[in-house]
């Protein structure tokens, strides 16, 4: 899929193949009121897109929604996504997507700050002294009851550094198994660090498909890959 860029994006828009998303990372308690107001405004204007809605769109070319669709996305697997963002979404009846870094969730609490600092996981000042930074697997299971949880690699790794079979197992395969084991639900999509799209790295692309993912989410698009 070489050559993806401005022209293809314009074509997708022209043909009605697009979706609004809002990408969040940290959602500390200090931002809860603002987040609630923002999400309430989005929910009033747009309809949340569930996995079933996305599958149906790709199957039929129609949204079957009463308003234009959108997805709020909460990245990384921060504890504050579980304690602040998810409850606000639940309160507002919003379905969100949570791409989580599975080894961040796995990481022992005393090591989470060091893990974050070593893996491009940005922290907010008011939480630097917090004991726990990542959500737990119990949090993941609870979130998955109402929302979509997908892996954002095992350790927030960029695509060019996933080279060996061990790398592929750690960053692509095991994260999917871990999410599905804990949630009892399909982990349908995958997101690389820095949002690399499918189609530019044949070996990693093949691994993502082999792992069973059906969607890849990048900085500029959602691709159905299987």
């Amino acid at each position: 899929m070489s050559g993806y860029g401005f022209a293809q994006h314009r074509a997708a828009l022209r043909e009605g193949r697009y979706l609004r998303v809002v990408n969040y990372h940290n959602t500390p308690q200090s931002t809860a009121d603002q987040l609630r107001a923002e999400l309430a405004a989005y929910a009033a204007a747009f309809a949340c897109v569930t996995l079933e809605d996305l599958d149906r769109f790709y199957a039929t070319g129609e949204w079957h929604l009463d308003r234009p669709g959108f997805i709020p996305v909460f990245y990384e697997g921060y504890l504050n996504n579980a304690t602040v963002a998810a409850p606000i979404c639940d309160e507002l009846g919003i379905v969100a997507w949570f791409p989580i870094i599975t080894r961040f969730v796995d990481c022992p609490v005393p090591d989470q700050r060091a893990f974050a600092e070593a893996h491009h996981i940005d922290l907010v000042e008011e939480e630097l002294a917090a004991e726990r930074l990542a959500m737990s697997w119990d949090d993941v299971a609870r979130i998955a009851e109402r929302h979509v949880v997908i892996p954002h690699t095992g350790s927030h790794e960029q695509i060019s550094k996933v080279v060996t079979r061990e790398d592929v197992e750690r960053e692509i395969f095991e994260p999917r198994r871990a999410v599905e084991r804990v949630t009892g639900r399909e982990a349908p999509g995958f997101v690389w660090l820095y949002g690399a799209p499918y189609g530019m790295n044949p070996e990693q692309d093949a691994a993502v498909r082999e792992a069973g993912y059906r969607y890849q989410i990048s900085n500029t698009m959602i691709q159905r890959i299987a």
């Binding site: 193949r17 697009y18 790709y58 709020p72 907010v124």
Partner: peptide, 14 residues
Amino acid sequence: EREGIPMVLALEDL
């Protein structure tokens, strides 16, 4: 790291 960033993503089908 702490703000919601709106985007308009293309939907591609491979």
